[in-house]
């Protein structure tokens, strides 16, 4: 589904030049659950943002499905993103002024789904993540775990081919974190491709493959056929 070759991304500020991704190559197949690990600042988020078409690389090739998207402009990227990709963030990124229901409904509106279909989909999705009883609440009235479930529901409601999650459990305690991870692996079992950035080896165990980055390069790759303990650093 995703084929990345020799991807380069550098950030320039007045004083320093940081190479966030250095000739990175990676491919992800449909149905995989990939986790990305590595020390802080190694380029995980940068990679995820590029995969999610929120950002574009400086050099290298990126094939999404069969399209070469590395050189796409903002508008073209937006249209692929809208149709194919769902996001889950560490800080949830829900809109405070909108209710749980409205937050989840939002991507459907932007994808021009008919109102009657929207209702069915949102309700189903809220039930699936177990937050239906809170549909009328506002984000600030929910716990972190509940908010993240809403964020997951929002990411999934359009039935995206690919879900990207940047430290989805980073702001949650282990119990709430577990719930979210179970939700993600359940999704994966149903066929959604997932790429997740995490610092937690425990969370990484839920995935089918784990790659580790350092200084913008992949330094190791492990297939999690069984639930293995993996040491970090």
């Amino acid at each position: 589904m995703i084929t990345i070759k020799n991807l380069i991304k550098t950030y320039r500020t007045e004083e320093v030049e940081t190479t966030a991704l250095n000739q990175l190559s990676l491919s992800v197949n449909t149905g995989e659950f990939l986790s990305i690990m590595g020390p802080s600042g190694c380029g995980k988020s940068t990679l995820l943002n590029i995969i999610g078409l929120l950002d574009s690389p400086d050099d290298g090739s990126y094939q999404f499905d069969v399209e070469e998207v590395a050189s796409y402009n903002e508008k073209q990227r937006a249209s692929i993103r809208k149709a194919n990709i769902g996001f889950v963030f560490q800080n949830f990124n829900l809109i405070d002024e909108l209710s749980v229901y409205e937050n989840v409904e939002l991507p459907l509106i932007y994808n021009k789904v008919k109102p009657e279909d929207r209702k069915v989909k949102v309700t189903q999705m809220l039930e699936r993540v177990g937050i239906a009883h809170r549909a009328k609440h506002f984000p600030l009235q929910l716990s972190g775990g509940q908010q993240q479930r809403v964020a997951v529901a929002r990411a999934l409601v359009t039935n995206p081919k690919l879900v990207l999650a940047d430290e989805p459990t980073g702001n949650l305690d282990s119990k709430n974190g577990n719930e979210v991870m179970e939700l993600l692996s359940e999704l994966n079992a149903q066929g959604t491709t997932i790429i997740m950035v995490t610092h937690s080896a425990y969370d990484a165990k839920f995935s089918t493959r784990t790659i580790s980055l350092k200084d913008g390069e992949i330094v190791s790759e492990i297939k999690n056929e069984q639930k293995l303990d993996i040491l970090i650093q």
Binding site: G52, R81, K82, E97, L106, Y110
Partner: peptide
């Protein structure tokens, strides 16, 4: 921030 979220969700 709200704008950014909407944009990620595909708003035109």
């Amino acid at each position: 921030k709200e704008v950014a979220i909407r944009k990620t969700l595909g708003a035109s």
